[in-house]
Nucleic acid binder design. Sequence first.
DNA 1: GTGAAAGCGCTAACAG
DNA 2: CTGTTAGCGCTTTCAC
Lengths: 352, 352
Amino acid sequence: MTPTIKDVAAYAGFSIATVSRAINAPDTVNPLTLARVREAIETLNFRPNPLGRQLRGERTRVVGVILPTLSNPVFAECLQGIDELASAQGYRLMLMTTQYDAQRERHAIDTLRSHRVEGLILTVADADTHPVLDELDRDGPLYVLMHNDTKRRPSVCVDNHRAAYDGVRMLIAHGHRRILMLAGTLAASDRARLRYQGYAQAMHDAGLDPAPPLEVDFNAEELAPSVLAHLTSGAARPTALFCSNDLLAMVVIRGLRRVRLNVPRDMSILGFDGLAVGELLSPALASIGSPNHGIGCAAWRRLLERIDGRRASSIAGDEATPLALRLPHTLRHGATVAAIAHEPAATLASVR
Amino acid sequence: MTPTIKDVAAYAGFSIATVSRAINAPDTVNPLTLARVREAIETLNFRPNPLGRQLRGERTRVVGVILPTLSNPVFAECLQGIDELASAQGYRLMLMTTQYDAQRERHAIDTLRSHRVEGLILTVADADTHPVLDELDRDGPLYVLMHNDTKRRPSVCVDNHRAAYDGVRMLIAHGHRRILMLAGTLAASDRARLRYQGYAQAMHDAGLDPAPPLEVDFNAEELAPSVLAHLTSGAARPTALFCSNDLLAMVVIRGLRRVRLNVPRDMSILGFDGLAVGELLSPALASIGSPNHGIGCAAWRRLLERIDGRRASSIAGDEATPLALRLPHTLRHGATVAAIAHEPAATLASVR
DNA sequence: GTGAAAGCGCTAACAG
DNA sequence: CTGTTAGCGCTTTCAC
């Protein structure tokens, strides 16, 4: 049905070898022959079947992308960045999502490997405790992690610890003392952990007591009573919340609104991710921004470097570039964070 | 490097044919043999190379997905829906984006075809005037359109005309008379056109004059002066805006806020898409909802039906299911649309 | 400058 | 039940 190289050869009156050369090394064939072959290709509307090439041991020009979900714009933005560069460079993307499930992560990696992808760009729940990544290091295709914050593996992300630290310091600079950190189902993820450590460090450095992170159900319409209790508990009530990501922050804002708490008057909110949509909220969401699109692009570039590097020389480890690439984060100010008049600690207890 | 079926055969002490059978038809080989082969597969960590299978004329189990962009959650949500079903059924997705560019659409289709995808799920700018789709009808892989609203081709979407009609009627029911439709760069798209027609029809049926659609630059930080002029032009000032999609609506709301116009007091806003994030805004965005996730799922199911159908019988056209599948839209109420006290038409002119 | 032929990994007759 | 063999579409020696 779809024409093959044989059809072209027959039509043009040459051998398949010549057709192949006409396609892949045009300057090694007689110009007249070339013209005739090209005409044949044109009229038959022939497209070389990559499968044949690939099988022959060539590069597949396909890279795999594994993401937790596309419902979170963070990952959609990354993917957008990857896709722009990849398609410009003649690569195809094979996509799989995992819903943060370690088993699905493994399955995705296996599947993509079997498809002989040349490389893998992925975000896993926890990069440090993932045996399958060790396998990849050994004999799998080259890979680059996105967002996973680990020094041990090739990765691109922001410095989550520092980013969280900076964000919480900003809250403190605004006069907040009782600051709580909220985390979603990501609690088990490497980046959530580091963000919590950043929070704790910032609190500690300011002579404040970090509180344990509070887990919040992401999908609930309203905030759970247990959570609300924490947020409205009289004198010890927090004045600011640091949310481990923007989606969570938005859910929390809605939840607070339902119980007639005003943001930022009653509670300041700081998110993490810098989702574009956050700026469209009102009040605009203050957030620690990570350059998602840029992370996608950088991950692509790193992967390609490594692929080309491997191709060029199996000897030289390119120790020039560090394993873990840290992109700068930004502090996006927004009206969800308000300054608070600082009251002497002594009077705090008596406020309510 | 990666083991092949030959390695397994050698290791297990059988022929490659037996290994192949052990994998694809385990019940046709001696249990003892099977066990030995499986052991070999296990220890060598062998994964059959799909490329070999595919080349042999088998199904590739890969389908292509072509979307305008992933920056718009509408498409990310669709993709999420597709991916969930596809991966559950053992299919892989090859993804390409087009940025609404017809040339890139063609290129994506060509590329994916050359990869011998079994089917294509895609959203194009304009489904009616796209010659490449005719080619697909003739001899391409099976395909299903998403969001493209055309009766002539296999497609899944909401009834854009009716959806817009319903939305605008709702605005009218809230007392609005001077209603403007805003469209983004999508003005050239089939669905934007139909949405405008729905708007115009609703206006007409209510004895009101539809205004020509107003084009708005999507990416601008602020609304263009020409647009603002339209929105604030004295007595004839519209009281409600129907935006051709939610992202646009959110940009417009921000633009209005910058010039101190309050939504919904000074202006009601109705979007289109029903993005989840719209509900998190405040005021919550009223929107005509299309079930994006569901559209993705439905598109997948339709594609698979068609693939299986073709496989089962090349004779029977399954005329049972209509070409164009219309999913029900919803009208999501939100605080961005407020009722307006209706004033007699005579006094309207003198209000300002 | 061109063609013949081998082989990539796999499946599917066809024999035994 | 198992092995032999041809061939999917293509690239790549090796001859001519």
